[in-house]
Design a protein around this nucleic acid. Structure first.
Lengths: 150, 150
DNA sequence: ACCTATGATGGGTACTCACCCACTAATTTC
DNA sequence: GAAATTAGTGGGTGAGTACCCATCATAGGT
C-alpha cells in the first residue's frame, strides 16, 4: 500500500509549495465551517472591513476588498437578509448606499473570528508561541511585499 | 480614492489569512506560467513524483498525489502526447500500466522546476536567506502536521 | 470455469469563482 | 436641460476543479 501522504520531496522542498498547500487547507477548513452557517469567506471579510474601517459606500467596499461590485451586491444581500448589515441610501448622493454593521453583524463577526481562531489553532498546533510569532512576522513581510508591488 | 491593497487589519493579523493569501498568489503565479505551456500544476507534480520515486503504476500515482484515477489518466494522456512519459502495459499484470519518465520528461521537469524557483524567488524576495530557511522550517512543521493527522 | 475484484479510461456532472454586460436611477458637466 | 458619468443591481458566462459512474480488459479466489 502506498502512503497517499508522501508528497514528492522535490515539491515539499519548495517553500512556495508548502505555502500553497498549507494555505489551501487552512482556507478550505474555515470555508467548511462557514458553510455550515450558509456563509462564505467573503462574508467574514466584509464584516471585518466594516468593523475595522467603519461604514462604507458599497463601491468602496468592493474596491477595498478587490471584489466585483456586482458580487459585492450579492454578498450584502445575504448579510442584509439576516440583519447583519444596514443598507441606507445616502441622502446627499442618492445613488450611493452606505453600509453599516449592525449589532447582530458584530455578534456574527465575533463568532466567525472565533471560528477562524479555532482553525488557526488547529493548523499551527505544532508550533510554539515564539514560532507562531516568527511565522506571522515572516508572512507579513511577504504579504506586504506581494500586495505592494501590484 | 480608496487603496484597494489595504486589507482589514483584523484579517491580516490572522496568520492563516496571510498563509492563505500568499499561498494563493504563489500558486496562481506559477499556474499562469505553466498555462503558457498549456500545462497545469498537476503535470509538474506528476513529473516530480516520477522523478523522485521512479516508475509507478498509474493507480499508485493517483493514490500518492491524491488525484482521482480518472483524472490521472487524462493528465498522463497529455504528458504522453508530448512524449514526456512512457506508458507500457505491465507484462506480469496486463491491467496495470507502468508510467516512466522519458528524457524529454526530465528536460521538461527541469524547466518547470526553474519556473517554480523563479516564482519562489519573486515571492520571497524581501526575506534574507536566513529568514527563508526559517520560513521553510516552520511551514514544514505545519505541513507534516496537517498531512499526518488526516 | 465462474464469480468477484481491480486497473485504466471516457464521459459526464455539480460547484465554485471571477468576470462581464445590460439596465436603472441619480448626479455631474457643459 | 442634454449628454456623459457613476452607483447599484440582475443576469449570465466561462474556466477550473473535483467527483462519480459505466465500461472494458484482466486477475485472482474458490
Amino acid at each position: 500500500m502506498i502512503d497517499p501522504q508522501a508528497s514528492p520531496p522535490s515539491l515539499t522542498a519548495l517553500t512556495t509549495y508548502l505555502l500553497s498547500r498549507t494555505g489551501k487547507t487552512a482556507r478550505s477548513r474555515l470555508a467548511a465551517r462557514f458553510a455550515e452557517r450558509r456563509l462564505r469567506l467573503w462574508h467574514h471579510a466584509v464584516l471585518a472591513a466594516l468593523s475595522d474601517f467603519g461604514p462604507h459606500a458599497q463601491r468602496e467596499l468592493a474596491v477595498r476588498l478587490a471584489v466585483d461590485p456586482s458580487d459585492m451586491a450579492k454578498i450584502l444581500d445575504e448579510l442584509a437578509e439576516d440583519g447583519r448589515v444596514d443598507r441606507v441610501r445616502d441622502s446627499a448622493d442618492r445613488r450611493r448606499v452606505t453600509v453599516t454593521l449592525t449589532d447582530a453583524g458584530r455578534a456574527l463577526l465575533a463568532e466567525l473570528d472565533a471560528e477562524a481562531a479555532a482553525v488557526q489553532e488547529a493548523v499551527l498546533e505544532p508550533l510554539t508561541a515564539q514560532e507562531r510569532a516568527q511565522l506571522n512576522a515572516l508572512l507579513s513581510k511577504v504579504f506586504t511585499h506581494l500586495t505592494g508591488e501590484a
